[in-house]
Design a protein around this nucleic acid. Structure first.
Lengths: 199, 199
DNA sequence: ATCGCTCTCTACCATATGGTAGAAAGAGAC
DNA sequence: GTCTCTTTCTACCATATGGTAGAGAGCGAT
């Protein structure tokens, strides 16, 4: 077959993010992935020697993508904590809504083997550390509500990923996924977080 | 065999909540469940004719339990919205921490078949409706921050279940699951939500 | 005793799944 | 042309899984 090098591999990764993040790692078979990509299962196993290593690659890529998006948002935002929070929310909200599986995959981590979870935790820790340090400093300066910075990071994370990955919760309050609905959801999410963080 | 009627059935349900909620429905086999309970797989299939119907029963029971806990907490709390929110958080926090799988199972719903999700949504909707109506009324009275009541319910739900079901997120901020750590987590969670809801 | 009912088990089965072995097919180097 | 390298495929395999069939064990009623 003639394809540009890496194309197949990239397609497999992309499909895997969607499937793993959407249905959960265990619920997805290599045949499912191959079917979406349009190749034979063996082609998947050619690029990734086992389902487990495919998962590794998928996690690594997702972490990189999200980290890049967040980095860019923080860099572009003014140096004011509430504005930065808002910038991060806006930056994450768009890809999260477009591809719910992205954050779904992040959530899936807690169900995976301790090794996978550990690896990703280590991968993300420097970013988290920087975030908590920043919050701590801004809390001390009185620009954010006094609280445990680490737990506040976790809580904000839980709110954002939770709302983005649980259509069921939104369906229960009869929320509509229209453009207007999305705009309102983003505004409410931002307001919710800002209210929780304001001094 | 001689056992009190319902004992085996109840044990199967209990083990299934933990396993489905902890690892995800697809990642759990009937043999896994039978192994935990200490019976043969066929015994599981005697009480629940298929894995799918077992899931139904597990969801139904979990929903009932949680609903009862929340009902009782709301009833016991004074008629003041912030106090009620705090009461619900406290009521849910204890079982959620003791058995992370409980809320993990609730979260699992979004990965299940639309039929299961739909059924549970309908089951829960009256409670949700009452909650949003209550919030709306209290917002109008100025005792809560003005916002979309439905989305606020979803956001609060996302925060609580998110933080309770993602040990990974807490591990990333180096949180310790000691008694003191748990107390601090509960306090921070409560403060976070109250801050987000206060007028 | 034995019939009937409830509950649990052993024995199997069809299918799906992750993974191995190796063939084929294209394309560039010589 | 042919050799070699890369990429994809067909053919299989061992195992795990959800589920069926039916036997056996305990126990109360007659």
């Amino acid at each position: 077959m003639v394809t540009r090098k890496g194309t197949t591999r990239a397609s497999i990764l992309e499909a895997s993010v969607d499937l793993f993040g959407g249905r959960g790692f265990a619920a997805v078979s290599l045949d499912d992935i191959a079917g979406v990509v349009g190749v034979a299962k063996q082609t998947v196993l050619y690029w990734f020697p086992s389902k487990d290593e495919l998962l590794d690659a998928v996690l690594e890529q997702t972490a990189s993508e999200l980290a890049a998006v967040i980095e860019a948002a923080v860099r572009a935002a003014p140096d004011e904590p509430l504005a930065r929070v808002e910038a991060v929310v806006n930056a994450v909200f768009r890809p999260a809504v477009r591809r719910p599986a992205l954050l779904g995959l992040v959530r899936e981590v807690s169900r995976l083997s301790p090794e996978h979870a550990e690896r990703l935790t280590m991968r993300v820790r420097p970013f988290v550390r920087r975030a908590t340090d920043y919050l701590e400093q801004e809390m001390a300066a009185g620009r954010l509500r006094q609280a445990d910075p680490g737990l506040v990071v976790s809580l904000a994370y839980a709110t954002v990923t939770g709302i983005a990955t649980e259509p069921t919760a939104l369906a229960a309050v009869e929320w509509q996924g229209t453009t207007a609905g999305l705009r309102r959801l983003r505004r409410e999410l931002t307001e919710f977080l800002l209210a929780a963080l304001r001094p």
